[in-house]
């Protein structure tokens, strides 16, 4: 087909449909570019910055980049791995991530990134800033201690008439996630569950649900995040 383009990632020849975003194009070629904010089918935010790759020598986020013919992409170099690790460590110290007590532990994508990049300890000091928990809605509670401001919920979870149920409040390091109580209370059980699943960390939680999967049978207990992409897809 005409609209197929060729590009390379770390020297590996890849093909994809023109104008596919790079995270997904890589995925189709069996290469995992790590990301925390990207959500398939939703307009990319480019906010977590973990999918940073180098294209023709420039740093770009893969989720906001569309592949074009002849693109030369570096992803798994030491320099980029180090950058990703630093971002992950920044996210760990900027919140209050008490993994042992978290409902999402084992299924959490931030934690899985910590595992993938073998973070034994963040290099930055912990700040332990106070963050508010909002449990005022009937089906969900919002634990801002764990929020990484990826905006997945802001971008994808809408009311029936298209209004945002989640939004950001404040700016900079004081920015937090905010939930519209009225709209949240109109969510169905399925929608509430979907909201919890959309959140990469344990910040949006379905009430009366947690610690469902026993240790050993959780998403990231045995295999690193992204391994399903790198294992299952065979390159053409």
């Amino acid at each position: 087909m005409n609209d197929q383009v060729k590009f390379t990632i770390d020297g590996k020849q890849c093909t994809a449909e023109k104008n596919t975003n790079l995270v997904e194009a890589a995925k189709m070629n069996g290469i995992y570019i790590p990301t925390l904010c990207h959500l398939e089918g939703v307009k990319p935010a480019g906010s977590c910055r973990i999918c940073n790759v180098k294209i023709n020598g420039r740093f770009m986020t893969a989720c906001t980049t569309l592949v074009v013919d002849g693109m030369v992409i570096e992803s798994n170099t030491n320099e980029i791995q180090e950058l990703r690790k630093i971002i992950i460590e920044t996210l760990f110290v900027s919140g209050n991530h008490f993994c042992p007590a978290c409902e999402k532990s084992g299924n959490c994508e931030l934690q899985a990134m910590g595992y993938k990049y073998q973070m034994m300890v963040p290099r930055f000091p912990y700040e332990f800033e106070e963050k508010e928990v909002d449990a005022k809605t009937t089906k969900l509670y919002i634990d801002r201690n764990r929020c990484i401001l990826c905006k997945r919920c802001v971008r994808s979870i809408k009311s029936k008439d298209g209004k945002s149920i989640f939004a950001i409040k404040g700016r900079g390091h004081k920015a937090v996630i905010n939930i519209d109580h009225k709209l949240a209370n109109q969510m169905t059980d399925e929608e509430a569950m979907h909201a919890m699943e959309t959140c990469p960390v344990g910040s949006i939680l379905r009430k009366e649900r947690g610690y469902v999967d026993p240790i050993g049978s959780r998403k990231f207990d045995h295999k690193p995040i992204g391994s399903e992409i790198e294992e299952t897809v065979t390159v053409k």
Partner: peptide, 17 residues
Amino acid sequence: IEESCGSCAPCRYLTVI
């Protein structure tokens, strides 16, 4: 720190660090 919009994780918090 005061003027960061807070969208990018590193700008939001690495500045504070």
